[in-house]
Nucleic acid binder design. Sequence first.
DNA 1: GTTGACCTTAGAGTTTACTCTAAGCTTATA
DNA 2: TATAAGCTTAGAGTAAACTCTAAGGTCAAC
Lengths: 142, 142
Amino acid sequence: MLKIGELASKTGLTAHTIRYYEKNGLINASQRSEVGYRCYNESDVRQAEFVRTARRIGFSIADVAALLSIRVDKTNHTCQDVTEITQRKLKDVSEKITELRSMQKTLQILLNSCSGGPENAYHCSIMEALDASNSQAVRGRA
Amino acid sequence: MLKIGELASKTGLTAHTIRYYEKNGLINASQRSEVGYRCYNESDVRQAEFVRTARRIGFSIADVAALLSIRVDKTNHTCQDVTEITQRKLKDVSEKITELRSMQKTLQILLNSCSGGPENAYHCSIMEALDASNSQAVRGRA
DNA sequence: GTTGACCTTAGAGTTTACTCTAAGCTTATA
DNA sequence: TATAAGCTTAGAGTAAACTCTAAGGTCAAC
């Protein structure tokens, strides 16, 4: 039976985070010591590791809660339930990537257009591009 | 001279957002009407458009504030000042993309491993992968 | 027997960028 | 003239996921 600090170092979470997850129903201590300390058994530890793994992959806390509810009652859930969550997350991630790539491209174009040197910014082409909202560099995201 | 609602529809921001930007020093109305309405002249409008453009590209509010301080005093700032901000932002964006790509890859591996069918989740390989923290799919992000 | 590390709780604070509300005045339209 | 749309302010609420604080109890070691 581990105390919270031990679970923390075992999982790489902080004790604060573990209590926060508990408040959100992701992790629980199946027992308390006589003085009220949280005690985690092997099954609790596995659940905590599940949570940490899922969070690390990018699932939100709500996603993890959904995955856990499947995990504790696998026979009443289908693979489809699981893949739905995963697919939705993949879609989110992919959309975010598309958006960021567009930003990346724009920023790179801006950087390419400017010397970046010590001369004053009076004719800086980045500033000019930002000033002209009809500029080529920026129009990509309109 | 535009009122806030007119500036809003011209820039695609909301009046709420414009006031919020004002509070953060990004946009200001160089005049007020007799009854206290904000009045924006051409220069104010250009600044608002600058802000909107820079935000759209992905600059944070702090970034935009920095760019504006250069904008209003170009002769005392260098191209280097501008490219530094842009480069830092490009680095942020690129790092975020790397992180998300890794998530994307992991999620795709999970999806590929699972049928996603209506059978129950007892042997769902996604759940198994999340349970086994030493799984191949997940280890990539450790 | 006292220091220091660890545990408890409730609850507030952080970050970013809005978004909305309430209460009230102004302006345009019918 | 009534109604609706628009403007004002200060300040609260939202989202996500922590992160920290205060005030206090517990435990192992020197």
